[in-house]
Amino acid sequence: MSQTFTLDGKTIPFADGQTIIQAAADAGVFIPHLCYHPEFKPHGSCKLCTVKVNGRHTASCTMRAAAGMVVESDTEEINAERRALTQMLFVEGNHFCPSCEKSGNCQLQATAYHLGMMSPHYDHFFPNRAVDASHPEVLLDFNRCILCSLCVRASRDVDGKNVFALSGRGIQTHLIVNAKSGQLGDTDFTLADKAAHVCPVGVILKKRQGFAVPIGERKYDQAPISETVGEGQ
C-alpha cells in the first residue's frame, strides 16, 4: 500500500479498489455512517459519510480512494450537514429514545450524540407506521426504519432469502416484507439470519429481550461510536 491520500491532513494509505471510508477505517479514522457496513456492498443512500474530496461533496462509502486526494471529513461545515441529515432522519420516523429498547445500542442515537445533536430541530412528521409482531422470535417496528437497506442486502446477499425490500419512491419509500400477507411470520425468516442482526436502529428486534442489558453495559455506554471504527454497526 504505497499509495496515499490525506484525510483532514493525515496521510492515509490505501489499496487498489478501496473506498475512502474503508481506507480510513483501516487507518483507525472514523467517518460517521449509517447505511454503510463493511461486510456489504455500499448503498450510498444515507449520505452521513459525505466528505469533501478536492473541495467537492461525495459519499466516502462509494468513492474509491485515489492517490493524492485531499479529503475533508471532520470539519465544522461537514459535521453541520451531517447533523442536519441526522435530524431529518429523526423527524421522518418515530424515534422515541426514552422508551426504545435499542437505546444505548443504536447507531442512529450514537451518531446523533457524536455529532452534538441537541434537538430534532425540524417539525416531526409523526408518520403512522405499523409494528409487525407476527413472527415468533422477531419483532419489526417500522417506526424506526431509516431505509438504510442493510436488512435488504443481508437477506438477499448473505441469507439468500429476499425477505425485505424497499418499496415506493421518494418520501413514500418504505420497508416491506416479501410475503403475500406482508407479515414476517409468513416468511422463512429466522433469528439465525444475518438480516436479523444488521439493523443499525430498533426495527428488527429479538423478541422478549427488551431492556435485559443494564445501563452502563450497552454498546455505546462502553465507548462512543467514534471509537468503534471498523465494527460495522
Binding site: P98, S99, C100, E101, V131, A133, L139, K207, R208, Q209, G210, F211
Partner: peptide
C-alpha cells in the same frame, strides 16, 4: 396498546 409488553415498564414510567 399495540406496543410489545417488554417495553412497557420503561415507557409507562414517563
Amino acid at each position: 396498546q399495540g406496543r410489545p409488553y417488554w417495553e412497557v415498564p420503561v415507557m409507562v414510567q414517563r
